[in-house]
Simulated assay, not measured.
Amino acid sequence: MRRKTTCTAHWRPRNAADADASFERLCRIAPNHAGLGEYEILVLYARHIEQAAPVAPEACAEELAALREEIAPLAHTRLRAQARDYLAPAWRRLAAALPRADFDPNDPDLHASYAETQIPDWDAVIASVQAVADHAQHPALLARLAQAFQHRQRPEAATLAWARCSERAPEMSPADLLRAASPRLYRRALMFEELDEPLEPTDFPAWLLLREPGLVHHLDRADSPAPVGAVFTAMAELLRTHLRGADEVEARQRLQALRPPLLRAYLQHGPG
C-alpha cells in the first residue's frame, strides 16, 4: 500500500526560489490538492518579499495588516512547523521600516518591537523597547520586554517588568495579563486571585514582591523597569528592613497605612 503524502513535508521554503521549487514539486506529486491555490499565494508573497523595495513608513500599517491578517494565518495553516521560518523575512523587513524611538500607544503594534517579537528576535525586542525613552509607562512595551527578558534567561528582570506592566494596567487581572509569562510566574498570578483574603489587582506587584523577596536586590538596575507605586515601595522597604535585621516598626506602619491586608499577609506568612 502506498504511503500517503503529507504536503507540508515537501514544503520547506527558505527563500523565493526554494518556495517556487517546493510549489512545483507539490504540483507534481499532488496536482489535485485543494490547497494548491493557497500555496501559490505563499509562493507569490515570498517572491514579493525578496524583490520588493523596503517598506515605506506610510505603508507600514497596510503591510502589517496584510501580513498579520492574511499571510500569517495562511502560513500557519499550510506550513505548520515551517511557518515561522517562512514568515521571518517578512517580519524582519517590516521591523526595519517601523519606528523604534517613537511609540504611539494608540497603535502599539506599529513599533519595531512588535514585528521583532513575531520573528522572534529577543535581543532586538529588548533594544527596540529600550529605545523608547518612556517605555516603562506603556503596558504593551513592558509585556514585550518581559517576554524578551524571559527568553534571554533573565528571570528577575522579566518578573519585575511583568510587575511594572501590571502596575500600568490595573484594569486587567494579573492572570489575564501574565498569560505569556513563565509557567512559574503565571501560577503566582493564579495564586494571587485565589487568596483567602482577596486583594485588588493594584496590589499584585507588592504581593508578588512579598512572595519573591529576592527581587529587592534587582530593583535598582537601570535596564530593568520595576514598579514605582507607593504600596510596592512600602513593601520593598519593609523587606529591605527585614533583610538588614533592623527594627521594622516604621516600615510596618507605612504599609499598614497604605494597605492593611498586605501587612497582614506579611505578618502571617512572612517573606517568600
Rank of each mutant, 00 (worst) to 15 (best):
A175Y: 00
W91E: 13
D121K: 01
L219I: 07
D121F: 15
C60M: 04
L178C: 14
C165N: 01
L208G: 00
P170I: 08
A140W: 00
P57E: 07
R221D: 03
H242T: 02
P31M: 15
A131G: 08
H111F: 00
A112G: 09
A9P: 00
A56F: 03
H269C: 05
A148E: 14
W11V: 09
S182F: 14
F23E: 08
V249M: 07
T159R: 07
Q153C: 07
L185T: 13
H217K: 01
D223M: 10
P73I: 02
A169E: 13
L239C: 06
D102F: 05
A53G: 02
F204E: 00
F23T: 12
Y114M: 09
R254S: 04
G37K: 15
P201D: 02
A19W: 09
A83M: 15
P174S: 10
T117F: 08
Y39R: 04
R25W: 07
A158T: 15
Q137W: 09
E63N: 04
S22T: 07
V132P: 06
C7E: 07
A222T: 04
Q130K: 05
L178A: 02
L239F: 08
L210I: 01
T5G: 01
L26R: 15
L215A: 00
A131K: 12
P170D: 01
A161I: 02
R28E: 05
L64C: 02
H111P: 01
E63D: 14
A30G: 11
P170E: 09
E50P: 12
D203K: 06
A169P: 00
A21H: 03
T8R: 11
A115Y: 15
D121P: 15
Q130R: 02
L26V: 09
A143H: 02
L209K: 00
Q153N: 10
P57C: 13
A16G: 03
P201I: 00
Y86M: 06
Y186G: 05
H76E: 05
E62F: 03
L190S: 05
L177M: 09
A16H: 15
A127T: 04
Q118E: 09
A81C: 09
H10I: 13
Y186S: 05
L185I: 15
E212K: 01
Q153G: 03
N106A: 10
A115S: 13
R188K: 06
A65P: 13
M1P: 12
A131R: 14
L243F: 07
G214H: 12
H217S: 04
D18E: 12
A34T: 05
R254Q: 11
R84L: 06
A115C: 13
R188Y: 09
V43T: 11
L263E: 08
L199K: 00
L195N: 06
L238E: 13
D20A: 08
E58K: 15
A115G: 04
L267Q: 11
R211G: 14
L178W: 04
P57H: 07
P73A: 12
A65I: 06
E58I: 10
P99V: 14
A81T: 12
L267P: 04
A115R: 01
L87M: 12
M235F: 15
H242Q: 11
A236Y: 03
V43D: 07
